[in-house]
Simulated assay, not measured.
Amino acid sequence: MAPAGDRRTGFSRRRQYGIFIGYVLAVAGAVVGAVLLVVSSFNPPLFAGIRMGVASVTAPISGGLATVTEAAASVPEAINGWLFAHAENAAMRRELAAARPLLQRARVIAYDNRRLRALLAVRDRTPDPVVTARLVSSSASSGRRFALLDAGRFSGVLPGMPVRGPEGLVGRVLETGPAAARVLLLSDPESIVPVRRSRDGLPAIAIGRGDGAVDIRSVNATDVRFAAGDVFVTSGIGGLYAPGIPVARVAAAGTDSVLGRTFAQPDTFDFALVERVFMPLPAAPTPAAAAPTDPAP
């Protein structure tokens, strides 16, 4: 048997038919090309019609092949984009996790700065402030309401001195140590503050309830109507608290005794201002009445 490399072309009929068909297609293509060349030279309109007819048949096929090619080419790009987006999202999550503590710290600093600016404005209006100190803690789970101030006798803090925040009155100093002081809050049941209504000067007293709020009670009058939103400030009666310090706002309308919400919430700010005890000026003496003179005889 002869080796495969020595076989002739005509050994296989299939190969013979293939070669023959190839020759036929080549001759047919040459003839068609020659005919189209002659037609395009002698009858251009006819050639244009034939060209557009062939284009109409081949255009959908070409469009479909182009769509398939573009879809196949976009697969690697989509995979690459997904991998890049996944890696970018992971990097952004890491950056966010690293920046979150810094953001929280910046918010705390901004909050403290706003409070300190407000307290500084109050201090500028106070004629003789004692010290600005930090409220390091306050009781909120018991019936008694106290706060601890990180300033004491060394800073000039003495029992009875009023303590106020940016929004209003906090309470008064109850006990002092060398570097700390205990503050009796407005909401403590032992706290009683003379107040007046800001819109008409109606006298009242604010008494602590032990639950973070105060009772506003009328003084020397009955059937007194309180409207929701009425603002009460210190009256200055009896000394201790200077007049005009915001104390509480009425929560709901009522008669004679209503619930009030204090403006200053010790658990929402850090710094407070200690003021000197208010000493009202004594009333000016009235001029003595002229002594009666004896009538002339």
Rank of each mutant, 00 (worst) to 15 (best):
88 E>R: 00
88 E>C: 01
89 N>A: 04
90 A>T: 12
90 A>Y: 09
91 A>W: 11
91 A>L: 05
92 M>F: 01
93 R>L: 01
94 R>S: 09
96 L>G: 02
98 A>H: 15
99 A>G: 11
99 A>Q: 14
101 P>M: 12
102 L>S: 14
102 L>Y: 14
103 L>R: 07
103 L>E: 08
104 Q>A: 12
104 Q>I: 03
105 R>V: 11
105 R>P: 13
106 A>M: 00
106 A>V: 02
106 A>H: 01
108 V>P: 00
109 I>T: 08
109 I>D: 10
111 Y>V: 06
112 D>N: 11
112 D>L: 12
113 N>D: 00
113 N>S: 06
114 R>I: 06
115 R>K: 13
115 R>E: 09
116 L>T: 11
117 R>N: 05
118 A>Y: 09
119 L>Q: 06
119 L>G: 13
120 L>S: 13
120 L>K: 08
120 L>V: 02
122 V>Y: 09
122 V>H: 03
123 R>I: 00
124 D>Q: 13
125 R>P: 02
127 P>R: 05
127 P>S: 09
130 V>F: 02
130 V>K: 07
130 V>L: 04
131 V>H: 13
134 R>D: 11
134 R>T: 11
135 L>C: 11
136 V>W: 11
137 S>F: 06
140 A>V: 07
141 S>H: 06
141 S>L: 05
143 G>I: 05
143 G>L: 13
143 G>V: 00
145 R>M: 01
146 F>T: 14
147 A>E: 12
148 L>W: 09
149 L>M: 12
149 L>S: 11
149 L>T: 07
149 L>W: 14
150 D>Y: 15
150 D>A: 10
150 D>K: 14
150 D>R: 15
150 D>E: 13
151 A>T: 11
153 R>L: 01
153 R>I: 06
153 R>Q: 06
154 F>G: 00
154 F>C: 03
154 F>L: 15
156 G>K: 14
157 V>T: 10
161 M>F: 07
161 M>T: 06
164 R>P: 06
